[in-house]
Structures are given as C-alpha cells and as structure tokens.
Amino acid sequence: MTTKVMKRDSRPTALITGGSKGIGLELANQFGQHGHDLVLVARSDRDLKRAATQLHTEYGCRVDVFSVDLTAIDALAELYRQVTDNGIQVDVLVNNAGTGDVGPFAVSDINRQLDMLQLNIVSLTALTRLFLPGMIERGSGRILNIASVVAYFAGGSNWASYVASKHYVLALTRGLAKELVGTGVNVTALCPGPTATAFVNQAGAGVMRIYRWLPKVTPSEVARAGYRAAMAGQTTVVPGLLNKLFAFLGELPPRSIAQWVFGFLSRSPLVTTTDTRKAS
C-alpha cells in the first residue's frame, strides 16, 4: 500500500526502510530537516502514517509511505516498481530495516533465522542493486547501510547468524565504496553499538554483558552520525568513542583473541531465542 502526503517538488528524496520508528525514524528526521523529501517503507501502515504526519508537519517535506514486508522476496521488485511508477527519483537509499535473533543457534527458530537473513542481507542487497544503476546514470547518489559494531568481529556466539549478517553488510559496503569511486555515488556503513531502542528488551539482549556494561547511545545520536557520514561520503562510521575502540579491537590480529572477548561480552545467564525488528 502507498500513501502520498503531499505533491512532489524538485528536492532530493531519501528512501528509508524501517523508517517508521527507532533509528529509521530518527534518520528520517535528519533527512527531513536537511531539505529532503522522504519515502518510508515498513510493515505497519498505521506506524507509517503516524510517522509521515509527524515528519510532514515538522519539516514541510513530502512523505510517501509504502507498507511492505521486506522478508517477502517478491516484495522487493514490487516496491521498486511502485516507487518508479509514482515518478519518485531516489537520491538517497537508506537500508535500515533489520531483525535480530539472540540465543544459541542450535535451538533457534529456523523460520526466524531465514527471515533475518532475508531482511538483513537479501533485501538490502536487492534494493541496492535495483536503485544503484539510476544513481550511477545520474552521476550522484548516496547509499547508507545500517550495519553494527558487531560487524567488526569475525563471529559471535549466542547471535552467530546476526553477527554474520552484519559482517556481510560491512563487507558489501566496503567493496561497493571502492567499486564506485569516480561515479558520484557514495556508500556508507553506519555501525552503531548498544543503542537505546526497543531491541534490547524485545530480543532479550539486555541480559548480555555487552548491553549491560557498554554505554548506550540514543537513536538520535546514531542518526546524526549516520547522516553526516553519508553526506560526507565516508565509507564507515561508528558512533561513540568506546564503540570506535571496540570496533578497532575487533579487527586487530590475532582475531581469535577479539572473538574470545566478544564471546565473553555476549554471554548471558539466560538461554533464549527471541526475534524482533530492529534498526541496527
């Protein structure tokens, strides 16, 4: 479903998946206040309409919303078709939608695992592939992929698939950034650490040492860092000084030591597996 809030004008447009709440909504605020029109994509039509009304009222920007389940493979091409059929030129693509799965892999729900990989990896890759050629043709564009500070580690116990999926996002972003030099298109990976969003409680991640011990940044702080980095053409950005140190240590050799430290921080007294839509 698509809802158009106001007539289009010549301002640049940012498409944000998972843009109705959390980090996604804060990113929408950043782009809206800096002169962009918006396209918000999420599953809940009610949340989308509420976000669109707030953004339009506050910034006067045009907001189009598309209620889409991005875990459905056919939905990706259909979303692209609807956006282009509505005459929307996407100048900035923000791949923010994602899901987390916390708990031992062997007892995890296989359907949640597959949905997570579909959303965190396949939908992000497909939307990038669909919207990138137009940006290259126009000689300008921005792609902002939401990864995570955990992407800097070779692997993580108790959320192995999630860490692997974010590692993919970071690797894809770095590869594309090199590939697109000279095209006018920049690709950025935003890699937040623990963030004060609903994910912490909903996914049961709050019992992990990494969430209990490391300071949390706000979604608005994460969004500001992501917006600035994308507009500046940075390839990666990690909000927060301690998170920057954490990411640096994750890539130091020997990586087995970093992986052990990460495993220690990922331990919890509970054995749970919970799924939630999240922004990082």
Rank of each mutant, 00 (worst) to 15 (best):
S108T: 09
S108N: 11
D109I: 08
I110M: 12
I110H: 12
N111C: 11
R112T: 10
R112A: 11
R112S: 11
R112F: 15
Q113N: 13
Q113C: 10
Q113H: 15
Q113A: 13
Q113I: 14
L114A: 09
L114D: 11
L114S: 11
L114N: 14
L114E: 12
L114W: 13
M116C: 02
L117D: 08
L117C: 11
L117Y: 08
Q118D: 07
L119W: 03
L119E: 00
L119Y: 03
N120K: 00
N120M: 01
I121F: 04
I121Y: 01
I121M: 13
I121V: 15
I121L: 04
I121P: 00
V122S: 14
V122H: 15
V122I: 12
S123I: 07
S123M: 09
S123E: 04
L124N: 01
L124Q: 05
L124E: 02
T125L: 11
T125Q: 14
A126H: 13
A126D: 08
A126F: 14
A126S: 13
A126P: 07
L127F: 05
L127M: 14
L127S: 02
L127D: 00
T128W: 15
T128C: 13
R129W: 15
L130D: 04
L130F: 15
L130Q: 09
L130W: 08
L130A: 11
L132E: 10
L132H: 10
P133L: 07
P133S: 05
P133R: 00
G134T: 06
M135A: 06
M135R: 07
I136G: 10
I136K: 14
E137A: 14
R138M: 04
G139I: 07
G139F: 11
G139R: 08
S140F: 15
S140M: 13
G141N: 06
G141W: 05
G141P: 09
G141H: 08
R142G: 14
R142V: 10
I143S: 11
I143Y: 03
I143D: 12
L144H: 04
L144E: 11
L144R: 00
N145V: 06
N145D: 06
I146K: 01
I146F: 15
I146N: 08
I146E: 08
A147I: 03
A147W: 01
A147H: 03
A147L: 03
S148F: 06
S148D: 01
S148R: 02
V149T: 14
V149W: 01
V149P: 03
V149I: 12
V150K: 00
V150L: 14
A151N: 02
A151I: 02
A151C: 12
Y152F: 15
F153P: 05
F153D: 06
F153N: 05
F153Q: 05
A154E: 06
A154R: 10
A154M: 14
G155E: 13
G155R: 08
G155Y: 07
G155S: 15
G156L: 04
G156M: 04
N158D: 10
N158L: 11
W159C: 07
W159L: 13
A160I: 11
A160Y: 09
S161I: 09
S161A: 12
Y162E: 04
Y162W: 09
V163D: 04
V163I: 15
A164D: 01
A164M: 01
A164I: 00
S165H: 01
S165Q: 00
S165L: 02
S165C: 08
S165F: 00
